[in-house]
């Protein structure tokens, strides 16, 4: 019999709740209270997440975010700023010593990204892993990923772009050099793609979830069983949201 992992479809939540849920699952998994878990989710309202090491005020135009109703949150993972709009976000939480997870961090990015690649093939999309943390289709980025390891547990989360609005994204993000902003926007439009752009049609959120689920099952030779957050995870998530992810102290700590 195949190993069974938990599948969570938590739907659309705020940025603060989303980051708190990922963290709560990590804690529960590290205590052996829940199996390895694959979670799919979306962001309402739209939000920007920044990497653990980034400075919020350096990266994000906070006033424009407020005006457009876009939330901002600091992740517990490194990496860059992401505008979460039309996308499917996944997270995988699994013990660091699980045989499915390479000890080498970069290799483990590759392994998890392979699951995404397999998932995308079920939508008819051929993609490749571009180290450190991107997936490309025809040389253009369709997915960004970030991993942390805490309490002997791996948490990797990432996005699969369903559609992309580069102009709005750059109204929210600051660029190092305003003078070349127009050129930068043009470059990024050339370098980023989405499911809708590749296929020339819209694909539903659930259809993407289903394809990615199969990708993870195939890559890791496991069976994903639909479940829900435990009471303990829900309580923990509420605590993390209140004490950490929704606070200025956390989000503006750098």
């Amino acid at each position: 019999m195949k190993e069974q992992w938990r599948l969570l479809k938590t739907g659309f939540n705020t940025a603060f709740s989303n980051m708190a849920i990922d963290r709560a699952i990590l804690v529960a998994n590290s205590k052996g209270k829940v199996p390895p878990t694959l979670r799919f989710y979306g962001w309402v309202p739209r939000a920007i997440s920044i990497g653990y090491f980034q400075s919020l005020t350096d990266e994000v135009d906070i006033l424009t975010c407020e005006r457009l109703g876009v939330d901002c949150v600091r992740r517990i993972t490194g990496g860059g700023a992401v505008f979460h709009d039309k996308e499917v976000t996944y997270s995988i939480i699994i013990p660091e010593n699980h045989p499915a997870i390479p000890k080498n961090i970069l290799k483990s990015y590759g392994r998890i990204c392979n699951a995404l690649i397999q998932g995308l093939t079920h939508l008819g999309i051929s993609s490749t892993y571009a180290p450190i943390n991107d997936l490309l289709v025809n040389g253009k980025k369709i997915s960004g990923n970030a991993q942390t390891r805490k309490e002997r547990t791996v948490l990797q989360h990432g996005t699969i772009l369903m559609d992309v609005d580069v102009d709005t994204m750059f109204s929210l993000l600051k660029v190092p050099n305003e003078k070349i902003k127009d050129k930068l926007i043009k470059d990024v439009k050339q370098r980023v793609t989405s499911i809708q752009h590749v296929l020339g049609k819209k694909i539903g959120f659930e259809e993407v979830e289903d394809a990615l689920k199969i990708g993870f099952e195939d890559e890791f030779d496991i069976e994903l069983i639909k479940g829900s957050l435990t009471k303990e995870e829900e309580t923990l998530a509420r605590q993390f949201e209140k004490a950490c992810f929704s606070t200025t102290q956390w989000n503006q700590r750098r």
């Binding site: 090491f53 400075s55 517990i76 990496g79 860059g80 450190i132 390891r149 805490k150 750098r254």
Partner: peptide
């Protein structure tokens, strides 16, 4: 000094 950016470091708190 503040070391910021879009890199990865493990463990993060070590920065």
């Amino acid at each position: 000094i503040r070391i910021a950016g879009d890199f990865f470091a493990y463990p993060e708190e070590a920065i």
